[in-house]
Amino acid sequence: MFLKSLVDRNRKFVEAVVSLHEEGALEANTFVFDLDAFRENAKILKENADKFHLNVYGMTKQMGYNPILHQAIVDAGIESFVAVDWMGARLMHEQGYKIGHVGHLVQPPKGAADDLLAMNPEVFTVFSVHKARQVSDAAKRLNVVQPILLRVYDDTCTFYPGHEGGFHVDTLESSVREIQKLPNVEIVGVTSFPAMLFNESAGTVRPTHNFEVIQLAVEKLRRMGIVVKQVNAPGTTSSDVFELMASMGATHVEPGNGFTGTTPLATVQDVQELPAVLYLSEISHIHNGRGHVFGGGLYVDKVRGQYGLKARVGKDLAERDVELIPDDGIDYYGYVDGQVEEGQTVIFGFRPQIFVTRGQVAVVEGIHEGKPVVLGYHDQNGRVIQRGPRQ
């Protein structure tokens, strides 16, 4: 779905990756990032956030917690990151980057709170009084008071499967009174997910009902005398929706795919951010006349539902239909239709979630100056991969 935008708007990137693959500088099963475009996207996001008085937490699970990309985000003036889970927080902290938000989307398990609070996160989202008590107990052991966000919902909120949970807005006040008894946490705001989604009928991004519930929760907290410092509204976040989010009361945003120009809005219009990522593979072999393409990173985030996957093959970037293996299989390979040859470069343009794959990550600099250089190889957790002969 993102292939057309990738080729149309950043063809130099695609052509450079084909050349680097043919030279052996890049290999199959690699998510390749255009660092120049990525840096510009981070700058655009920061400038637009400042324009609408929004604070930014960078979400980098989609990028495999890559340290080169983390630094590019910080260089743009975005100082803090959001961790999708406690393991991601550890990876970013290990690299020396500031944790802004933990606990949302994934609640940390018991025993992890001490570790996370020692990272001094700006906010910690909780789904229950029980979890707030765990955080308070950990904060007491560390002699700190931890600011927390409450995740809120009602009976008609939108959830992705497995994302359910939080404080029901109808009984929010009673939960708040219980949490206020805890000595080492302070309620500073609310959140929910997804607060924004692509609306197929409108052909653009719209607030979900979850955002309305966030607004209602804010009103209730303020009536209880709580100073609401953070209204966190993640989901489908790019510069083009910042004005709308700010107008609805958001104070904090969490772009992830915004950094790479792969939000759903980019499939229907030229968003401000350029496409800055692609998935590189090659034709491994041919069986019964059908090309097999190396997998490992072929988890496709079908953010706009089911659609036919395509790829560009070879130097001439010929478009080919692609079939992935069923969901209950392992993506050792995919299938590429049409005339192909072993060893040919295969370029995909889909929305990645690198942290749930076996995909590798390579960052390339200097593409738009005609001097592309591969800065390094990392795994899906941002750790260095050594390529070439071992010493």
Rank of each mutant, 00 (worst) to 15 (best):
H21S: 12
F2T: 00
D327T: 11
K220G: 05
A112F: 14
V84W: 11
K110V: 13
L105K: 04
V293Y: 04
G111K: 06
Y333F: 14
M1V: 08
R222F: 01
K315N: 12
I179M: 12
D115T: 15
L274D: 12
T267H: 06
D316R: 14
E23V: 04
L197R: 14
P147L: 04
E186P: 01
E365N: 12
L278I: 02
I226F: 03
A217I: 00
D36S: 09
T171K: 10
K51Y: 05
R133Q: 14
V373N: 12
A28Y: 08
D270P: 04
G96Q: 10
C157K: 00
S80I: 01
Q380R: 15
L274Y: 14
L197P: 00
A49I: 05
H252G: 00
K4P: 00
A118Q: 14
A139W: 02
G166P: 03
G338D: 11
K181Y: 07
L280T: 09
S174Q: 11
I385W: 02
G334Q: 02
E200V: 15
L375K: 15
H101C: 03
E186W: 03
G165E: 04
P264Q: 08
R39G: 08
V363K: 03
E282G: 02
Q71R: 13
L3T: 03
N184R: 07
M63T: 10
L149Y: 00
L6R: 02
F348R: 03
V144L: 12
V126I: 08
E219W: 06
N210D: 14
A276P: 05
G96W: 09
T263P: 00
A76G: 03
I187L: 08
D85I: 05
R312S: 09
D301R: 14
V17F: 06
E94V: 02
Y160Q: 08
R387S: 06
A266G: 05
Q380E: 13
P275Y: 07
K371W: 01
H104A: 11
A72D: 02
R358A: 14
V346T: 04
F242C: 06
Q380M: 12
M87Y: 14
E173W: 00
T156F: 13
E365K: 15
T125R: 01
V82D: 08
F33Y: 15
K12W: 04
G24R: 08
G343M: 04
K229M: 01
Q269E: 15
F355L: 09
R223W: 07
H93Q: 07
P234V: 01
S247A: 13
E219I: 05
S201T: 15
Q230W: 07
K46W: 06
Y299W: 11
A28G: 11
D115F: 10
E342S: 10
G166H: 02
Q230T: 14
S247N: 10
